[in-house]
Simulated scan of single mutants.
Amino acid sequence: METLIIVNPRAAGGRAKQIFQEIKKDLDSFFACRRVAVAEKPEDVAKELDIAAKENISRLIVIGGDGTNHNVVNALAHRPGLKIALGFIPVGTGCDWSRALGMPRKPQQSVEWLAKAQPHPCDLGKVEYFDTRSGGKMASHFFLNIASAGISGEVDSRVNRAKRRTSLTFLRATVATLLKYKPQHVAVECDGEIFYTGKSFLLVVANGRYFGRGMWIAPHALIDDGLFDVLLIEGVSRLKILFALQSVYSGKHISRNDVRKTRARTVYVHSDDGALGLDLDGEEGKGNDLRFTLIPEAVNILLHPTLAAIKKNN
């Protein structure tokens, strides 16, 4: 199986290139037939995928964080004819998709994990919205893990402005944002039916299970069941949210009365209070009139054969 390895040298605070050098021997051992490319920007990723299509490469391994994964997934989604199995070696700040897959955090162990992994069909999400950052033009993005609207977009903005990122960066940004954020009035429809109308801190549309560096926001989400797990946190008091924050890391928040949940193939969101902050696989955005659509089995990911918990028909 021919393999393309894409390295984002800016991931992990610029350490991704060094990490690649550290695991190069392991990669050589397990993936002898390979091509290595450095790609920082979306257009770099797109160029490499076009080359992969011409060279009949059937496996892609990405060394980067959630932002790099987001760029790769969007490039793949625009090339539906490219049959390539996608794997990740997590080295970024959040690494929430790899956490959902049960991957080891150490790069050397991730290489061994991927060597045993097999292609598995995975659902993909698409969101379309009026982008206030581009003057209200329609924008669209694909996401592999989780898209959300509300406070998460403001948290992303704080994280991206941080001069130095640590294991506590997401938590600190979340608490700081909670102290100032005002819940917005939203109207949410799921599969054409009214799901919720009222003030909301956060709406989550999940294919994966984790976001915000380890927050187990959608503990029952499956990557191949043809449905989003949809969660909404109502606009309750900040004090209640702060006290409940720890429960998100254990997944116990889903039993709270102020957390609404359902499953759906399509989700539509409008806010009378204006644009909502967006988090798209860790990438920030801002917009309104959001339409989320699930695309079943749109990509193949490399998945360890022992991991049944995140798949249907366990």
Rank of each mutant, 00 (worst) to 15 (best):
M1T: 13
N8G: 07
A11D: 05
G13R: 05
G14E: 08
A16I: 02
K17L: 13
D26E: 14
F30W: 11
R34W: 05
E48M: 12
N56E: 15
R59D: 08
L60E: 04
G64W: 07
V72H: 04
A77C: 06
R79M: 10
A85E: 06
I89A: 05
A100C: 15
R105F: 02
P107D: 03
Q109V: 01
P119Q: 05
E128W: 02
Y129R: 02
Y129D: 00
K137N: 13
M138K: 13
F142P: 01
F142D: 01
F143N: 00
A149E: 00
G153Y: 00
E154R: 07
R158F: 11
N160G: 04
R165Y: 07
T169Q: 06
F170S: 03
L171Q: 11
L171P: 01
R172N: 12
A173C: 09
T174M: 07
T177P: 03
T177M: 07
L178I: 10
L178M: 13
K180H: 12
Q184C: 12
A187L: 14
V188N: 02
E189S: 12
E193V: 08
F195R: 01
F195W: 06
G198E: 10
S200G: 08
V205F: 01
A206N: 03
G208C: 01
G208Q: 04
G214F: 02
M215K: 02
W216S: 02
H220C: 05
H220V: 09
L222A: 07
I223D: 00
I223K: 06
I223W: 01
L227T: 03
E234T: 10
V236H: 05
V236E: 06
S237W: 09
S237A: 12
R238L: 03
L239Q: 08
I241Y: 12
L242N: 09
S247D: 15
S247R: 14
S255Q: 14
S255C: 11
A264Y: 02
V267H: 03
D273Y: 09
L280P: 00
I295G: 05
H304Y: 09
P305N: 11
T306A: 15
A309P: 05
I310T: 08
K312H: 11
N314Y: 12
